[in-house]
């Protein structure tokens, strides 16, 4: 049994230690806001914050984060910066299909925690999650709005 802390709450989970955090969140804990896209840390749909860092949970073995603070999209509006990011996403009508947007919002929140006033280059460097609907420009505009 491994115990992980998600959104401030402890959860004992009975899984193999190498199980990716993504599947523990989705299938064991039923927190489906974090998405499976590629499984190889390419697309970023599974992005969560681990100790404040944007992390791709599909390549994060659960036993490696037993002592960490994990924040998922389910708690994003409890975070001051996360709330600003969500408001910017809504105001600029960023999502289309929406599937990648949990990961995008997490990545944006982590970026603004680290760099409150990101340059365009910072945004390109940090916001590497894929979006098949091509909402990249709207995402960048929303990050800028949330940082204002």
């Amino acid at each position: 049994m491994i115990t992980i802390t998600v959104n401030g709450q402890s959860h004992p989970v009975d899984v193999e230690p190498d199980t990716p955090l993504l599947w523990v969140l989705r299938d064991t804990l039923g927190m489906t806001g974090t998405k499976y896209g590629c499984g190889i840390a390419q697309c970023g749909a599974c992005t969560v914050m681990i100790d404040g860092q944007a992390t791709r949970s599909c390549q994060t073995p659960v036993d490696s984060v037993a002592d960490a603070s994990i924040v998922t999209i389910e708690a994003i509006e409890r975070d001051d910066i996360g709330r600003k990011v969500v408001e910017a996403w809504v105001s600029l009508q960023v999502p289309q299909c929406g599937y990648c947007q949990s990961g995008q919002v997490m990545a944006a929140t982590a970026l603004l925690k680290e760099t409150p006033k990101p340059t365009d280059e910072d945004i390109v460097d940090a916001m590497t999650n894929l979006c098949r609907c091509g909402t990249y420009n709207a995402i960048a505009a929303a990050v800028r709005q949330a940082s204002a």
Partner: peptide, 21 residues
Amino acid sequence: VARLDVRDKSTGKAVYAIDQK
């Protein structure tokens, strides 16, 4: 007019086929 599903899609609440149980 603002799209009806944007807030849910920005907060992980939108439910897709993959999320069903």
